[in-house]
Amino acid sequence: VTLFVALYDYEARTEDDLSFHKGSKFQILNSSEGDWWEARSLTTGETGYIPSNYVAPV
């Protein structure tokens, strides 16, 4: 499992996005959609889309 960590805070703009804070960790579920990845937050357990340029591999 590849884990990613948030580099910045992000406020969701749609109900499909995940809001998160810098330092939040994610499991990436689908990275084939270009700049928006489907991810599960390891902090909240919620699933949604995150901007790929806001995260980096742990």
Rank of each mutant, 00 (worst) to 15 (best):
T47N: 05
E11K: 11
G48V: 03
H21N: 13
T47D: 04
R13G: 09
G34Y: 09
F4V: 11
Y8T: 05
S19F: 03
A12C: 05
V55G: 01
E15L: 11
V5H: 05
D35K: 08
D16C: 15
Y10W: 08
E46P: 00
L18H: 02
N53P: 05
F4I: 03
D35P: 10
S19D: 04
A39Q: 00
G34F: 09
V5W: 06
L18S: 01
T14M: 12
G48C: 04
S41L: 14
E38H: 14
G45Y: 06
Y8R: 09
G34H: 12
D9F: 04
F20N: 00
S24D: 15
T47C: 10
Y10K: 01
E46D: 08
T43A: 13
S32W: 10
Y54T: 06
L7H: 02
L29M: 08
T44P: 00
F4Y: 15
K25R: 11
G48L: 04
A56T: 12
F4D: 00
S41M: 11
D9C: 07
K25V: 15
A6V: 02
S24L: 05
D16K: 15
V1S: 12
A56Y: 09
E38N: 07
T43V: 11
A39P: 01
F20Y: 01
T44W: 02
E11M: 10
Q27T: 10
R40P: 02
G48N: 01
N30E: 08
T2G: 12
P51I: 03
E11I: 13
L3Q: 07
I28Y: 02
F26C: 03
Y10A: 00
P57G: 05
V55A: 04
L42H: 06
N30L: 06
F4C: 07
T2W: 12
L42T: 07
A6N: 00
V55C: 03
S41I: 10
Q27P: 00
S32L: 11
G45K: 05
I50V: 09
S31Y: 13
E11Y: 10
R13L: 11
N30Q: 08
T14A: 12
D9P: 06
F20V: 01
E15M: 10
T43F: 08
G48Q: 02
Q27D: 07
Y8V: 06
S52H: 08
E33W: 10
R13A: 11
L18R: 01
W36P: 04
L7Y: 03
L18E: 00
G34T: 13
P51V: 01
E33C: 12
N53R: 12
E38Y: 15
T14C: 14
I50F: 01
S31L: 10
T44M: 02
E38C: 15
L29E: 05
P57R: 07
K22W: 04
W36T: 06
E46K: 11
I28N: 01
S41P: 02
D17Y: 14
D35A: 10
S19R: 04
E46I: 08
V5D: 02
T43I: 09
N30I: 07
L29D: 04
E33I: 11
R40T: 13
N53L: 09
T2M: 13
V5C: 07
I50L: 07
A12G: 12
N30A: 09
Y54K: 06
L29N: 04
H21A: 13
S24T: 15
A39G: 04
S24V: 11
T43K: 09
A6T: 02
H21T: 15
D35G: 12
R40I: 14
A39Y: 02
F26P: 01
T14F: 15
I28W: 02
R13W: 07
Y8P: 00
T47K: 09
G23H: 05
W37M: 06
F20T: 01
H21Y: 12
T47S: 09
L18I: 12
W37A: 02
I50P: 01
D16V: 13
P57C: 06
N53Y: 10
F20W: 01
N53A: 14
T43N: 10
S31V: 11
L18W: 05
Q27L: 14
Y10T: 00
T47P: 01
T43P: 05
W36Q: 06
D16W: 15
V58E: 10
T47A: 06
G34W: 10
T44H: 04
D35T: 10
A39R: 00
G45P: 01
D9A: 07
N30V: 08
D35Q: 10
G23A: 03
L3V: 14
V5E: 09
F20G: 00
E38W: 15
I50E: 00
Q27S: 07
G45L: 06
S19Y: 03
Y8A: 08
L18T: 03
G48R: 01
E33Y: 12
L42N: 04
A12N: 05
R13I: 11
P51R: 07
P51D: 05
Y54W: 07
D17V: 15
V5A: 05
Y10Q: 00
L3I: 15
S24M: 15
G34I: 12
E38P: 05
H21G: 09
